[in-house]
């Protein structure tokens, strides 16, 4: 065998929680700062492997746009042992970080100059927020923007304070819906696909980014097809079990593709025939 690589791809660097806020009953937003003082260097759509030593490690998508600072944000749902422990963190506590890993939304390529349709279902908002904020901070480089957001109930609306601000930006149309309204809800009711009939966009000049629970993709893609949207202009981010994040452990395979390396962001036309994808 030849020379040995010196870098240990499984060894995390450390970061410190600098801000934590509750987003919904089950989600918190964490701002972490890399102890190295360097920027994470991610682009919208990527994820990082987050560790708590003694608990474990999991892939978590990055919610903040790239900004050159050593901080980054992650919206995290409390759902397992690691995310449960993350939710017990206080400001000043340390985590382990590896990454960023994976493919990105095409904010600097295919999306440039195009109208953009964001379809954010449930915690799909979390990775899409990175792209939304990137696009809004480079507003002139894109055309009209539609942001569709759907959650189970009004209580599960993510980044609700920011949503209102986004809706006020020139050329941005925000539509929200909930599956089950509460007494105070005056907006749309129904699954996210019910919002498609309420907007009009030029399918030839629009790039759509869709992220949500596995069950949602098939229906959202069908709606877009009905609206004559080409799948070459549709990007999805697919969740899979991941252990290593670097194409070794085998858990995230979608047929022959690796969600950690070939994804998590896929151009849908590239995987429309991939049987395990959607």
């Amino acid at each position: 065998m030849g020379k040995i690589a010196l870098k240990d791809i499984y060894l995390p660097e450390t970061a410190t929680a600098v801000a934590i806020r509750q987003l919904t009953p089950t989600e918190k937003c964490f701002e972490f700062k890399l102890d190295s003082g360097k920027s994470l260097g991610h682009m919208p759509g990527q994820f990082a492997e987050i560790s708590l030593f003694g608990i474990g490690e999991a892939p978590i998508s990055i919610s903040s746009p790239p900004h050159g600072e050593p901080t980054f944000e992650m919206g995290i749902r409390q759902v397992g042992s690691l995310t449960g422990a993350l939710h017990r963190l206080s400001v000043g506590d340390k985590i382990g970080v590896r990454g960023p890993y994976g493919t990105t939304f095409p904010v600097t390529t295919a999306m440039k100059g195009k109208d953009i349709l964001f379809v954010c279902a449930g915690i799909g908002m979390i990775p899409l927020r990175s792209a939304i904020k990137y696009v809004l901070s480079h507003r002139k480089e894109y055309g009209k923007i539609h942001i569709l957001s759907g959650t189970r109930t009004p209580a599960f609306r993510l980044f609700s304070d920011e949503l209102e601000q986004w809706g006020k930006v020139d050329g941005v149309r925000l539509l929200e819906t909930v599956d089950q309204p509460d007494d105070g809800w005056k907006g749309n009711v129904g699954v996210i696909t019910t919002l498609f009939s309420k907007i009009s966009f030029d399918p030839k000049n629009t790039v759509a980014l869709i992220v949500g629970p596995p069950v949602m993709y098939k229906f959202a893609l069908l709606e877009l097809r009905k609206l004559e949207m080409s799948y070459a202009n549709v990007y999805v981010s697919l969740e899979r079990k991941m252990k290593c994040g670097v194409g070794k452990c085998g858990h995230c395979q979608i047929n022959g593709l690796y969600a950690c390396q070939d994804g998590p962001v896929f151009r849908y036309s590239d995987i429309a025939e991939t049987r395990e994808a959607i």
Partner: peptide, 23 residues
């Protein structure tokens, strides 16, 4: 060559190791 990754915590609840095991 697929593997799982998990942490093993020592009795002091502060030190331990991250291991990979065959999956």
């Amino acid at each position: 060559y697929c593997f799982d990754v998990a942490d093993r915590l020592n009795w002091d609840l502060a030190s331990g190791e991250r291991v990979r095991t065959w999956d």
